[in-house]
Amino acid sequence: MTIDALLARAARRLAACDSPSGRLDAEVLLCHVLGVDRTWLYTWGDREAPILARARFEALLAARALGHPVAYLTGVREFWGLRLATSPHTLIPRPDTERLVEAALAHGASDQGRLLDLGTGTGAVALAFASERPGWSVVGIDLSLEAVALARYNAQRLAIGNVDFHTGDWFTALNEESEKHDESGSARFDLIVSNPPYIAEDDPHLRQGDLRYEPQSALVAAEQGLADLRHLVDEARSHLVPGGWLLLEHGHGQGAAVREALAAEGYADTATLRDLGGHDRVSLGRHVEGRAGGERS
C-alpha cells in the first residue's frame, strides 16, 4: 500500500469517529512513525509504506480513534516554535496559551529581570519566555513531580539554561526557599504568570476531545473554575516587586471576574487580552506597593 493510500484510508477511519482533524492527525502520526516531516509525505506519497511502519502506524491510529490525544501518542507538541516533550502527567500546550507568552514578553521587555511561572507543566510558558529573554532568570513551579521532571528534560534538550524548575504547591516552594535567606527580597519577581486550572467541575467539555485524557487536577477548579485564579491574585502581591505584573490565563467567560478580583486586591492597570479567536484569554494587573486591597484601578 502506498503512503497516499494509507493516509486516505486512515483519514476516513478517523472521520468515521467524528475526529475534526482526521487527515492532519493521520499525517502527524505517520510522520512520527517514519521520522519524516509532512513535506516528505507530500513529495513521496507514491512510495510503498514499510510493513513494520504500517504496523506501528495502525496501532497509533487505533488509539487515536479511541480519542487518545495525538500529543500523547507522539510524545511531542510544538509551542512557540519549541518542540516540547509531553506526557499524560501534564496538560498539552495549546496555541491559545501563546497569548500569555506574548503578554509576558510585552511587560518584560527589559534585558534583565525575574519571572515566575506557576503550574508550569511541560515548562512551555517558562521555556518560551526564557528563550526570548536570555538575560532573565526564570523559575517554574508545579505540584507534580512528573511534570517538573519533564520540564527539566525539555530545558536540557532545548539547551535553555536560564530557567529552573521546582516542585511545590503554588507559592509554597518559594516560601520555604525564602526562609533560608534574609529579607533581601530573594523571592520577589518582576513578572508572575500562570495558566492554572480554571474549568468548572460540571463543564461538559471535560467529557469531550483531548480533555478526557488530560490530568483533571490541572484542569478543574472549584468556585466554577475561579478558585485557583482568586488564590493566585490573593497571594501574588507578596512575591512581586513594586510595579511588577501578574498575568493569568483563564476561560473565555472569566475575564470580568478575574479583573474584579485583581482590582479588589489593589492591582492597578487591570485589563483583559483576547486570543486569536477573539475570546478573553489573559487578565493582568500591576502591583502597587502599599496599595490596600479593595481600592479599584
Rank of each mutant, 00 (worst) to 15 (best):
L100H: 07
L61W: 00
R47K: 12
V76N: 01
G67I: 05
R64K: 09
A55Q: 15
H32P: 07
A59D: 15
R13T: 14
Y42C: 10
V28S: 01
E48M: 10
L82Q: 07
A49C: 15
T39W: 10
T74D: 11
P88F: 06
E27T: 03
R9N: 13
G67K: 03
F79E: 00
R12C: 08
D46L: 10
A10W: 01
F57D: 00
G35K: 03
A8T: 06
L61A: 04
V36Q: 08
V76H: 03
A53V: 04
A63D: 08
E78A: 15
T90I: 08
A63P: 02
T43K: 06
L41E: 03
T74R: 04
G22Y: 01
T97E: 08
D37P: 06
R9I: 09
E98G: 09
V36L: 05
V36C: 14
T97P: 06
R56V: 14
S87M: 08
L34V: 13
V33E: 03
G45M: 03
P88E: 11
T86Q: 06
R99F: 13
A55D: 09
L61N: 01
A49P: 05
T90H: 04
L91V: 07
L30K: 00
T43M: 13
E48N: 06
A11Y: 04
A10M: 06
A53F: 03
R38M: 12
R12G: 01
V70P: 04
L30T: 00
L30E: 00
D37Q: 09
D96C: 03
D18N: 12
F57I: 01
R83I: 09
A49D: 04
G45H: 07
G67W: 07
A85M: 13
D96M: 03
E27H: 03
L41V: 09
T90G: 02
F79S: 01
P93K: 05
E58K: 07
L24V: 05
T86L: 06
A53R: 04
R23A: 12
W44T: 12
E58P: 12
F79R: 04
E98F: 11
A49L: 14
L41R: 01
D96P: 02
D96I: 14
E48L: 11
I92R: 00
C31S: 04
A8W: 08
V76F: 13
A71I: 10
R94Q: 05
A8E: 10
E58T: 11
I51E: 15
V36Y: 02
D96W: 09
L52S: 11
L61G: 01
W40M: 07
L29T: 00
P69F: 06
T97H: 02
V76G: 01
L91M: 11
W80M: 05
R94V: 05
P88T: 15
S19R: 06
E98M: 15
G75H: 06
C31G: 05
L82K: 13
L66A: 13
A65P: 08
A53D: 15
L73A: 09
P88N: 08
A10K: 02
R94S: 02
R47G: 13
C31A: 10
L41P: 04
G45W: 02
R54V: 15
A26V: 02
S19C: 11
L14K: 00
T86N: 07
L29S: 00
